[in-house]
Design a binder for these strands. Sequence first.
DNA 1: CTAGTGCACTGGTCGGACCAGTAGGCTGCA
DNA 2: TGCAGCCTACTGGTCCGACCAGTGCACTAG
Lengths: 248, 248
Amino acid sequence: MGGPRFEPVRAVRAYERVVEQVEEAIESGALSPGERLPSERDLMVQFSVSRSTVREALRVLQARGLVRSRPGDPHGAEVLPFTPAALHKSMTTLARVAELSLAELVQFRMVLDSSASLLAARLRTDGQLAEMGAAVARMRAATDHDAFVAEDVSFHDVVARASGNKLIQICTDVVRSIVLGLISEKLAAAPDRPALMRQTIKHHEEVLAAVRAGDGPLAARLTRKAMYDYYADYVPDGERPALRALLE
Amino acid sequence: MGGPRFEPVRAVRAYERVVEQVEEAIESGALSPGERLPSERDLMVQFSVSRSTVREALRVLQARGLVRSRPGDPHGAEVLPFTPAALHKSMTTLARVAELSLAELVQFRMVLDSSASLLAARLRTDGQLAEMGAAVARMRAATDHDAFVAEDVSFHDVVARASGNKLIQICTDVVRSIVLGLISEKLAAAPDRPALMRQTIKHHEEVLAAVRAGDGPLAARLTRKAMYDYYADYVPDGERPALRALLE
DNA sequence: CTAGTGCACTGGTCGGACCAGTAGGCTGCA
DNA sequence: TGCAGCCTACTGGTCCGACCAGTGCACTAG
């Protein structure tokens, strides 16, 4: 006690050090999206490691969504612009191995999307308001179910953007696609689809009105209600109370 | 139009197919945490690929937090129990490359933690209530700042657990550690620390009382307030209104 | 000036090699 | 018989060299 606390020196593999350096260069902005890494054969010289090591490092960087390499490309691996793909992947894995229930996912969406609505009610621009209106209009005009869902998504996406919080925007996007992936087949086979679509449109119009009026709490409440009504049928009875707990 | 829509056949690399198969085995539960993968040399026989390919696949699986391999281990790579490490990594990367502001992160925590409090007010067990009380007691007894923060964290963690939503629990955990990582140095140098600690304890007691009373909305509101008061000083003036938007 | 063709180089994969490190069986001592 | 210590077979980490199909660019022929 009291003396310098030494940290255990984990054996750092060569490829990890390569990953760290390249990662740092990318995250610090020294390498911008679209720029190229040197070729693998150049990298092995620069890092003084073998090509196998370089390649393992590139695989890790690729798994993290930071770079992409194409066979034959004479310019070397490309630094990618940020995408939530890696986040999406790890959250999807999480959903499977941690056995996240649909109820938990929907509940999470209720929390996040309603907060987005609340913030959007205050921070939305007129342009975003128009985008939301347009999305609702396209929902109304949608003929097939896929198009309807797509416009539904775009509405929620505008709201999330209008919240001014990129993290909320990204997380709603990721969780939404996981939820949709889980129930898409059931959704397409839902009974009385037209009625559900009409109800959904009505809900969206109400949310939009609340956002336009700047009534954040109302917009949030309506968003939670809309999401509950939309998904409750797919959630097992026993888990529905947990969702209703968010409806006040 | 009309004909079968063919999807572009992206050239699937050999190592990707290896990743897919192992991933599927793990996520489906065919391989449980603690179990071992065959050795690399066995895998190259089973998959009919070279060891380089096997190793690149293992690097990807390791980057995703699914397996771990130690040099010299005669039992092969170990299948890991789920940890949010991969999620944490990708969200940390996200925070850097998407240039998430502290305000966005704190706002996200306000949303998630307050929802956790709201749910916990309804769903908490008596045992969890006791844990929360114990955490607050330890906060009060904490002598140094690190211990104080640690107990603060454990309080929030119990609340998140009591929400009954694993996704909320994990995400609050991940974002919290990112936030703490961003401001830990500033936090330790905060002026008038004892006063801040007293205020924080008071806030936690109030939240705990609301949770105990089953008053979800109050617990949520208090949680947002507590978090705002705790972090507002570190958020640039211009971004504070966005946080206040969550305080009603 | 353009269409077409090589070519140089790329990433993907393979096979073989060596090393340090581990675990478990074996040996030899008590 | 029991146990401590060594030994060995095998592991993962790294390196090397090789081949292939594919790419982009420069060059050439029209």
